[in-house]
Design a protein around this nucleic acid. Structure first.
Length: 434
RNA sequence: GCGACUAUAGUUUAGUGGUAAAACAUUGGUUUGUGGUGCCAAAUUCGAGAGUUCGAUUCUCUCUAGUCGCCCCA
């Protein structure tokens, strides 16, 4: 390859969407949109560019400097490509705080940028469904988040037994940390980080490190209701109170037909601003056994933007994990994976037939059919090959005979079926099949 | 940002210190108004740069990219 040639590689860590990829992407977006709209959520968006301060105020400066795309514009302003949407939505809600109607149900599908080392399922640009419910401090809001999460996966075609929803509560964790282990804020954070990483170390290592933080008496708190430790802990009111709230949420979800929910005392989620219920959804497939997405309550976030506290719950769902899951379960419909969005290819046999073919194509378009006109005048076999390769399901050849009779043969090149009829009959046939 | 591994055609891969191969895909043809199989033919390749050598796709180094782990995961 000569040096003067441009590279065909996309920029590091980003993806190209060829038409067959775009169809899959659109399918994911469509399920997201349809599901959220069915729960009464409204879509919003914002620019991918934000002033850098928006992130430094909430996230640590180190993360912003090292893990975002940040640059200085021509007016000497520091600009960052949005690495997440939450500060943006918080800014937007805070900006119209008094005119908005609560509870406020909003969702968005932004593309986000993070300057990180790319890995499988973790690129530098990705799309993420963001769902937020503002202004409802009751557990009904937490329940709704989990209900939507479950519905989303089901709308993709997953079954209840395919995934598991793990739930916990920051209130409960905090109560255990302060009341049971009697840790201060710093110790509590340390222990939580350690618990978050428990699966990456041996049980012995974990026990040793945990004792360094919580003292010799450390013993991981058991939520087994039959254990003695449990009884003792429940005697401490703040713990009992938080646990009862959580149990109430779980019971309520089960009553609504969501049975694959489990309490997980070791669920932490490495995100400081959660204040209440937190949850994470796991794929149970043996080959894709991992976290899909999660979220929780973050009532204090808007206060960071100079606003009063506004109750908020939400979750984010990236496109990469869900795409992997759909592949694992073979849940991408054939019509999405293999077929063009074009329904029919109208083939002109010879030069004289082109005007007639154009007219037919236009009429079909009027009835809502997507039509590509082939005026290459190549041999009919080649035109069919072209349609097949593009993934177009139907062809109609137009030549002298059709121009005279006004009758066409509609051929389905996937099944080989043929159908004869006049324009309206052809249109009706296609519309009834597609 | 740190560490390990990898890089041969569009794709998946074989192979060698003497400039390379298969399958599938692609393009054209198989006598011209209906493709998919078969048959014939063609195009395209050793990631980039430097070094060792008479000679490097092969060995060494650097870079780039990818994969996997660590950090992080808002």
């Amino acid at each position: 390859m000569s040096k003067s040639q441009l590279s065909i590689e996309p920029y590091k860590g980003v993806r190209d969407f060829y038409p067959e990829d775009m169809r899959v992407q659109n399918h994911i977006f469509n399920v997201w949109r349809k599901t959220l709209q069915s729960f009464g959520y409204e879509e919003y968006d914002a620019s991918i560019l934000e002033p850098t301060e928006l992130y430094t105020s909430k996230t640590s400066e180190e993360i912003v400097n090292e893990q975002t795309y940040t640059f200085i514009d021509r007016g000497d302003r520091s600009v960052t490509l949005r690495p997440e949407l939450t500060p943006t939505v918080a800014r937007m809600v805070a900006g119209r705080k008094h005119e908005l109607a609560y509870p406020l149900r909003w969702f968005s599908i932004p593309n986000l940028f993070r300057y990180e080392r790319p890995q499988k399922g973790r690129l530098r640009e990705f799309y993420q469904l963001n769902v937020d419910l503002f202004g409802d401090a009751s557990s009904n809001a937490d329940i709704e988040m989990i209900q939507i999460s479950s519905k989303l996966l089901k709308n993709f075609g997953m079954k209840e037994e395919d995934f598991e929803i793990r739930i916990s509560s920051r209130r409960l964790i905090n109560a255990v940390m302060t009341e049971w282990y009697e840790l201060d804020e710093e110790g509590s954070k340390k222990l939580q980080k350690l618990i978050d990483k428990k699966s990456k170390m041996s049980a012995e290592d974990f026990a040793v490190k945990a004792k360094e933080i919580a003292g010799d008496a450390f013993e991981f708190f058991s939520f087994d209701p039959h254990s003695e430790v449990y009884e003792e802990a429940m005697a401490l009111l703040p713990i009992r109170d938080a646990k009862e709230e959580l149990d109430g949420i779980i019971d309520d979800l089960k009553a609504r037909g969501i049975s694959n929910i489990v309490f997980d005392a070791e669920l932490i989620r490495g995100f400081d601003y959660y204040t209440g219920t937190i949850f994470e959804v796991f794929d149970k497939h043996p080959e894709n056994n991992r976290s899909l997405f999660g979220g929780g309550r973050y009532d204090k976030l808007l206060a960071l933007f100079g606003s009063d506290e506004v109750a908020a719950t939400g979750f984010g769902m990236g496109d990469a994990p869900i795409l992997e899951t759909l592949k694992t379960y073979n849940l991408i419909p054939t019509s999405v994976a293999k077929r063009s969005t074009t329904d029919v290819s109208v083939l002109a046999i010879d030069e004289e037939s082109i005007p007639h073919a154009e007219k037919l194509a236009d009429t079909l378009r009027e009835s809502g059919i997507n039509v590509a006109l082939n005026t290459s005048l190549k041999k009919i076999g080649d035109q069919i090959k072209h349609a097949e390769k593009t993934g177009i399901q139907y062809i109609i050849a137009v030549g002298e005979n059709e121009a005279k009779s006004g009758e066409y043969t509609l051929k389905n090149i996937v099944t080989g079926e043929k159908f004869d009829g006049r324009t309206e009959e052809i249109a009706g046939r296609i519309n009834s099949q597609v």
